[in-house]
């Protein structure tokens, strides 16, 4: 059997994966703090066919997320913060593990603890005195939180050595992994109160990417068609 039919199929599935990633990006064009996914391509092993090297197609590599900052949107809400610079807000997930997010749409739970929009408490937790009105909360650039003029704690901005190794776990959260390294304080970032970071998805480039992926898919499918024709010609040898 010709090998090419399989290498072309591998190329098609790589382009399909790229299409899926771009669809997800476009679906998240309005998700606060969302970062576009990056998918890389690589070629596969080469094997000798009649003494000549023949490749086995293409595959994708997960490169993590793009680093461009989304534009800041003013909300006027004292409990919304945008991270200016690299890094994440650290939260404690419901299963006890650490989660990282750039979605700064915060709120207060029934105990007065500062929580994210999906209900996770910050890590380390920050609680404002019971009955504090949201408008009386002020968050400084360094993350210092004051309620009615009294300091109650600091929102820490953290980052990992290799952000490309973070695992996306949904709900705008990332989980540190062995590949990403453990989170540590990030010095090059500040917080801006009353603003949110928009999704950094650029619709125009996502659309262009989809066109490129579709054409790449078509090209590989052409190779399959030709390989099929080769087999057909070979079949006609026997009458």
């Amino acid at each position: 059997m010709p090998e090419g039919i399989y290498s072309a199929a591998a190329g098609m599935s790589a382009q399909q994966a790229q299409m899926d990633v771009l669809s997800n990006d476009i679906a998240n064009v309005n998700t606060t703090g969302y970062k576009q996914q990056r998918l890389g391509f690589r070629d596969l092993v080469y094997e000798a066919e009649q003494g000549q090297p023949v490749g086995a197609g293409a595959a994708t590599i997960d490169l993590g997320r793009t680093s461009a900052e989304g534009s800041l949107t003013q909300t006027g809400d004292p409990l919304s913060v945008a991270i200016v610079g690299p890094g994440f807000i650290q939260v404690r997930r419901s299963d006890g593990s650490i989660g990282l997010t750039r979605d700064g749409q915060l709120g207060l739970d029934a105990q007065g603890a500062i929580v994210t929009s999906s209900g996770e408490r910050l890590s380390p937790p920050l609680t404002v005195p019971k009955g504090t009105d949201a408008s009386a909360i002020s968050i400084g650039q360094d993350g210092t939180v004051t309620a009615n003029g009294t300091k109650v704690g600091q929102i820490q901005i953290v980052n990992v050595p290799a952000p490309g190794g973070l695992a996306s776990v949904g709900d705008n959260l990332f989980a540190p992994t062995a590949a990403s390294g453990a989170p540590a304080a990030e010095k090059n970032a500040t917080l801006q109160q009353g603003a949110l970071e928009s999704s950094n998805v650029d619709l125009a480039s996502a659309m262009v990417g989809m066109i490129a992926a579709q054409r790449g898919y078509e090209l590989a499918s052409r190779a399959i068609k030709t390989q099929d024709e080769l087999l057909n010609v070979a079949n006609q040898l026997v009458r």
Binding site: G11, E49, G57
Partner: peptide, 11 residues
């Protein structure tokens, strides 16, 4: 043909 198919897969 196999080499060409690989070229297209790696476009």
């Amino acid at each position: 043909q196999d080499q060409l198919a690989n070229d297209l897969a790696n476009a």
